[in-house]
Amino acid sequence: MEIGHLNVMQNWHKDLSDQQMFEGEIDLAIAADRLGFDSLWCVEHHFEDYGLCPDNIQYLSYLATRTRNAKLVPGAVILPWNDPLRVAEKMAVLEYFAPGRVALGIGRGLARREYRGFRVPMEEARGRFEEGARLVLDALDKGYMESDTELFQQPRVDIRPRPLRGYRDALYCVAMSNDSAEAAAELGGSMMTFIQFAFERHMPMIELYRERFRKVHGREAPPPVLTDVTVIHEDEEEARRLAYEHIGNHFIAVTDHYEFAGDHFKNIRGYESYQAGADLIKSAGLEESQKTYIEAQNYGTPKQVIEKYRERMELVGDFNAMLIVSSGGIPFPVAQNSLKLFAEQVMPELRRMSARSRVAA
């Protein structure tokens, strides 16, 4: 099992400037590397407090100089908002800063306000994602980029510095819908998803991904990456209080950023399936939906967190785990405590569980 740490770069802190928030997030990433996490990830978001990292490859280039062991993964580059040529160039440079410990994460984005800010029609998202992924992967394989399609007209140019490697064997794709899961499988990438509701409801999409991967590539899919907003505390009641405050805040941020109270997804080609989730939130009500979201995440004492992972492994088999310990305005000392408790008490047991799971399989 690989275990990752994800910076979401969210400033819901009442008393911190954006610079102070960045410093706190950087300290968490450096601590995760020191504590033995396998990978460090960072999201890409724009224009508001929901996520303040508009260039996650640039952020990881900085972490490359401050860390020693962890793999560095943009989680993810949102391809419809980025020029594929620039993505390929920046990934080539990142590898020079951290040779042998870089992977590529890609996604197509969901927030209407971010698409509007970039003047990109959401109806073009899937085409831009699929073509952009092909161009970036080919360029990092071949060392040049060239395209003449309706979406991308790119005269042949070399990628310099020359790419040290390709990323088809180190590719992660964010998947929050069946369409995205199938796209991840077709590209041969590992599926990374965010836990949103009771884990049983995630299983059909995971199985769809696995089935499509086997059909396209003739082999078993890599383990999915399961991402939780995580709060760990020595005291059970304090863990619950922190979770209901700060994971609850994160749910409100998610709902607002992606406009899940609206009806617009049903009219956007490629995003129709998200309307079902939005309708579920509306029918259940915001308060009940928030509670469902909190309970789906991983919070509690170290023993409680281990048990939730054990229950998941019984359902899904082997998987890779990702933690978000800083979101919803949680104080950075509390986030650091979650990280430390996870590394010292949860991580060793997770690795043993994963090893037993592989032997049993």
Results as ranks from 00 to 15, higher is better:
Ser147Glu: 08
His250Trp: 10
Ala198Glu: 15
Phe251Lys: 00
Arg168Met: 10
Tyr209Thr: 09
Glu245Ala: 09
Phe152Gln: 01
Leu140Gly: 02
Arg219Met: 05
Glu211Gly: 09
His233Thr: 02
Ala185Met: 06
Ala175Trp: 05
Ile232His: 00
Asp179Tyr: 08
Met176Cys: 08
Asp148Met: 12
Leu140Gln: 06
Thr149Asp: 06
Gly166Gln: 13
His217Ser: 11
Gln275Ala: 13
Leu280His: 11
Ser147Asp: 06
Gln275Asn: 10
Leu208Ala: 05
Tyr167Glu: 02
Glu186Cys: 13
Glu237Lys: 06
Pro163Arg: 10
Ser180Met: 13
Arg219Pro: 00
Gly248His: 05
Tyr244Phe: 14
Tyr258Gly: 08
Met192Gly: 07
Arg210Gln: 13
Gly143Met: 03
Ala183Arg: 10
Ala198Ile: 14
Glu237Cys: 03
Gln196Gly: 07
Asp141Thr: 15
Cys173Asp: 00
Ala221Ile: 07
Arg156Asp: 03
Asp263Ser: 11
Asp169Trp: 01
His217Pro: 05
Glu186Tyr: 15
Phe265Pro: 01
Ile232Lys: 00
Gly270Trp: 01
Arg160Pro: 04
Phe152Trp: 12
Thr193Val: 04
Val231Lys: 02
Phe152Glu: 01
Val225Arg: 00
Gly143Ile: 02
Ser190Gln: 15
Leu226Asp: 00
Ile232Thr: 03
Phe260Gln: 09
Gly277Thr: 12
Tyr144Leu: 07
Gly277Ile: 13
Val157Tyr: 10
Gly218Ile: 09
Glu146Met: 08
Phe260Arg: 07
Tyr274Phe: 13
